[in-house]
Design a protein around this nucleic acid. Structure first.
Length: 679
DNA sequence: ATTAGGG
DNA sequence: CCCTAAT
């Protein structure tokens, strides 16, 4: 059999390498974890969120490296975590909401560091998030989800990385357009070695964190962490041929990353489950919100106003998927950091503390305070923000929803908020400091001041400028948002939206909108749908549908909103040649084989891609050269495409295809000869 | 998991 | 490229 196939594969006299073929079942490289398969739970998304933010800004740059590099890929570690989640009803006030519909859940996602045992356990043990669901009859009070991301210091990979401190001249003024706000950046720290020791575990947990750059000023040198991972540029279309069969050996970063994993889990070549999961997550991560939204790429912005240099874009983040294990573990850790919170309108730093000494060295504050402000000499105030809080979210999901779906819902809600862009709000003593033009000193943030009450929060920027804008002084603004604050329309997010992929589910309470939204209009501006003016958005929940569908949520439902296309990678001529050659031999309809034969090493080309490409090639060959776009494909190839297409159209590909002894080779030739009119 | 097509 | 239905 095999031999025969070999013979059949010959095409135009070229011996074709034999592809060991086994029953498909056998060909599978390895069974993969289902768990692994794209379960993108909210938390996972959250984790990747940070990366995404940066990614958004970076992706455009390099096409090659862009695709998968920064995309977070979650592997079993994450999933495991997922499984570990403990759902604990915090309180069950009165329950039943009578009929079905929506019950309110009070969700508290909290994560604490769990004891990290050994490296091996790191993945799974890091921490768990606790989700408590509380059904409350009061719909409005519902969910209060606080995701607290701890930004903490940590040791760098080499154990040397202290807190990241951001130094800001006290007297610098926040630009009215909120430069400061632009400065925040989520970052995952690159440290990887941390898992090595249990003792470091804790530190590790702190390693990856969201980093909030309060100001674009000076960054503590130590804070600059170099990513241990390097993106290697890869030849977009270099491939090698093996024997006759053209095998393209391209791969790109993403794929490499995946590939590495394959080693471990051995998944299918084409699109490994991991990859799928990866994609799914990726997709979820990028919703239209992200696309349209100003994205947090702002982190790259430099504060020209201040005349200060900004931060250097760090590549660390999630881009480093390369570091397989590490990545995974890190992600996990990242999650770990998520802890329960209370919300108050924005992502906010939990607390601020003044820890002078903390400054440079790696002192780690044992104190719960999340945000550290240390004073530096030179009238610079150093801020080390250890955590930020997201705004209050109201989430409504059917009782029948699964915990997993709940998580996803939460994540999506978060994404919706952040997707529109976020800015930083400064709270001093519980009051929002709205006047961006004030100096720190004026605001009370001097080196000597007691900064214990200082905190920051992330607020959705999307629509109108939320609170931050403002006018006056801290106090004045308080009236508005602060006063109503408690309720300030948090985000009501319904996981269940079967329909309306696009339609924004967010609505905002008009009353809550502040009178003056002159919004800095900075970033995003009218982003997509209106997410919300104030820090909160209300997401209406189509209750009805849910009842029946237990987990309609994530997957199909909303996914559409969070889908990001893969980065486009035009086929190179070389690839086209390989494809054509393979199809000439194998015929159409056997894309899997084509893939295996000619693109096995090009993980970014799935058999579906090849099929699609063939489709377009046929089309391309059909139209006039003037109508063609992109890298011109040699007419010779196009002719072959038409010939092969004609040939295989006539001969039921699947049926006999390869088996037809003669046909393959000869007939195609014939076809070429008889081919229609390709010239 | 693949294939086939529509979008 | 994406998404789906059908295998």
């Amino acid at each position: 059999m095999v031999l025969k196939k070999r013979v059949d594969y010959r095409f135009k006299g070229f011996p074709v390498p034999v592809i060991p073929k086994a029953p498909r079942s056998a060909r599978r490289r390895v069974p993969f974890n289902k768990a692994d398969d794209g379960r993108a739970c909210a938390i996972e998304l959250l984790a990747s969120l940070a990366g995404q933010l940066l990614q958004e800004s970076e992706s455009s740059a390099s096409s090659n490296a862009s695709e998968g590099n920064h995309l977070p890929e979650f592997s079993h570690g994450v999933i495991e975590q997922d499984r570990q989640d403990v759902v604990k009803p915090l309180k069950t006030e009165e329950v039943h909401q009578g009929s079905c519909a929506e019950s309110t859940f009070k969700i508290e996602v909290a994560s604490r560091n769990s004891s990290r045992k050994s490296l091996s356990h790191a993945k799974t043990d890091c921490s768990r998030e606790r989700v408590s669901v509380n059904t409350n009859s009061d719909c409005w009070k519902k969910v209060e989800a606080d995701v607290k991301v701890e930004i903490s210091d940590c040791d760098n990979k080499f154990g040397q990385c202290p807190d990241r401190l951001v130094e800001t001249p006290e007297n610098f003024r926040e630009s009215s357009d909120g430069n400061i706000k632009k400065g925040f950046k989520w970052e995952q720290e690159a440290g990887s070695s941390c898992f090595q020791e249990s003792t470091l575990a804790d530190k590790c947990s702190l390693k990856e964190h969201l980093e909030l750059y309060v100001s674009p000023t000076l960054i503590d040198s130590k804070s600059n962490i170099k990513s241990p991972f390097h993106r290697k540029s890869f030849p977009s279309a270099s491939f090698s041929r093996h024997g006759n069969g053209n095998k393209l050996g391209f791969r790109d970063d993403d794929e490499n990353f995946l590939r590495c994993k394959k080693v471990c889990t051995k998944s299918k070549a084409f699109r490994s489950p991991r990859r799928i999961a990866h994609r799914r997550i990726r997709n979820l991560m990028s919703s239209k919100y992200w696309k349209t939204a100003p994205k947090l790429k702002d982190c790259e912005l430099s504060t020209s106003d201040l005349g200060v240099t900004n931060y250097h874009k760090r590549k660390t983040c999630y881009g480093v998927e390369r570091s397989q294990h590490n990545t995974i573990v890190k992600r996990r850790k990242f999650f770990d950091r998520v802890s329960g919170v209370t919300s108050d309108g924005g992502f906010s730093s939990e607390s601020v503390s003044n820890s002078p000494q903390k400054g440079t060295d790696g002192d780690k504050p044992s104190s719960p305070a999340k945000l550290h402000v240390s004073k530096a000499k030179d009238s610079h105030v150093k801020f080390s923000i250890k955590s930020i809080r997201i705004p209050e979210l109201y989430i409504e999901v059917p009782e029948t929803a699964t915990v997993g779906s709940l998580k996803r819902t939460i994540m999506e809600a978060v994404m919706a908020i952040l997707g529109g862009g976020a800015h930083v709000g400064v709270l001093l003593q519980g009051k929002k400091v709205r006047d961006d033009n004030r100096t720190l000193v004026q605001t009370g943030l001097s080196c000597n001041a007691n900064l214990d009450t200082l905190s920051f929060m992330l607020e959705p920027t999307s629509l109108q400028a939320p609170p931050t804008v403002g006018v006056g002084d801290p106090s004045s603004q308080c009236e508005t948002s602060q006063a109503t604050r408690p309720t300030e329309t948090p985000v009501l997010y319904s996981g269940i939206t079967d329909t309306l992929p696009d339609s924004p589910l967010l609505t905002y309470p008009g009353n809550l909108i502040e009178s003056n939204h002159e919004s800095t209009s900075s970033p995003a501006d009218t982003t997509v749908d209106k997410i919300t003016s104030d820090s909160r958005a209300l997401v209406a929940v189509p209750a009805s549908t849910e009842a029946l569908a237990v987990v309609p949520l994530s997957q199909k439902t909303k996914r559409s909103e969070f889908v990001q296309r893969r980065t486009r990678r035009p086929f190179s001529v070389a690839e086209v040649e390989a494809l054509v050659h393979a199809v000439e031999e194998l015929g159409t309809g056997r894309w899997r084989d084509v893939k295996l034969r000619a693109f096995e090493n090009a993980d970014h080309r799935t058999y579906v891609d090849l099929k699609d490409k063939w489709k377009t090639l046929v089309h391309t060959a059909t139209i006039s050269p003037q109508q063609r776009r992109g890298e011109p494909v040699p007419q010779e190839l196009l002719d072959r495409v038409l010939a092969a297409h004609a040939f295989w159209s006539q001969h039921q590909t699947k049926q006999h295809g390869k088996h037809q002894a003669g046909p393959g080779t000869l007939k195609i030739s014939e076809a070429s000869a008889e081919r229609p009119c390709v010239s």
